[in-house]
Measured scan of single mutants.
Amino acid sequence: DVEEQIRRLEEVLKKNQPVTWNGTTYTDPNEIKKVIEELRK
């Protein structure tokens, strides 16, 4: 469920934690926001 994935990513973003997505770890909040934007398409 895309909405659920977006919610999880936004939670991690608020906590300033790194996100691992498709084998890539993102630590930059701007990169995480880009992943969220991609999911919304």
Rank of each mutant, 00 (worst) to 15 (best):
D1N: 13
D1T: 15
D1P: 12
D1V: 09
D1Y: 11
D1K: 11
V2H: 09
V2T: 06
V2I: 14
E3I: 12
E3M: 13
E3D: 10
E3H: 11
E3T: 10
E3S: 08
E4A: 13
E4I: 09
E4Y: 11
Q5H: 06
Q5G: 04
Q5T: 13
Q5L: 14
Q5S: 08
Q5E: 08
I6V: 06
I6K: 01
I6T: 02
I6M: 04
I6A: 04
I6C: 04
R7F: 04
R7H: 08
R7Y: 04
R8K: 12
R8Q: 12
L9S: 00
L9R: 00
L9I: 10
L9V: 02
L9H: 00
L9N: 01
E10N: 06
E10M: 11
E10D: 04
E10V: 11
E10T: 07
E10A: 04
E11C: 09
E11S: 08
E11H: 06
E11K: 05
E11G: 06
E11L: 05
V12A: 15
V12K: 14
V12P: 03
V12T: 09
L13H: 03
L13Y: 05
L13Q: 04
L13M: 12
K14E: 11
K14W: 07
K14Q: 12
K14G: 09
K15W: 09
K15I: 06
K15T: 14
K15L: 14
K15R: 12
N16G: 15
N16T: 07
N16E: 06
N16F: 13
Q17Y: 15
Q17G: 11
Q17L: 15
P18E: 14
V19A: 08
V19L: 13
V19C: 13
T20Q: 15
T20R: 10
T20F: 15
W21A: 14
W21I: 15
N22K: 06
N22F: 14
N22T: 02
N22W: 13
N22V: 02
T24E: 14
T24H: 14
T24S: 08
T24N: 11
T24D: 05
T24Y: 09
T24K: 11
T25Q: 05
Y26P: 01
Y26W: 04
Y26F: 09
T27E: 10
T27W: 12
T27S: 11
T27Q: 07
T27N: 11
T27K: 05
D28Q: 05
D28W: 01
P29G: 06
N30R: 09
N30D: 15
N30H: 11
N30I: 13
E31Q: 08
E31L: 08
E31T: 03
E31H: 04
E31D: 14
I32S: 01
I32F: 07
I32T: 02
I32N: 00
I32D: 00
I32V: 07
K33H: 08
K33E: 08
K33S: 06
K33N: 05
K33I: 10
K33F: 07
K34M: 12
K34N: 08
K34L: 10
K34Y: 05
V35N: 00
V35L: 15
V35D: 01
V35W: 03
I36Y: 02
I36W: 03
E37S: 06
E37M: 08
E38Y: 08
E38V: 07
L39W: 03
R40A: 04
R40F: 04
R40S: 04
K41V: 07
K41L: 12
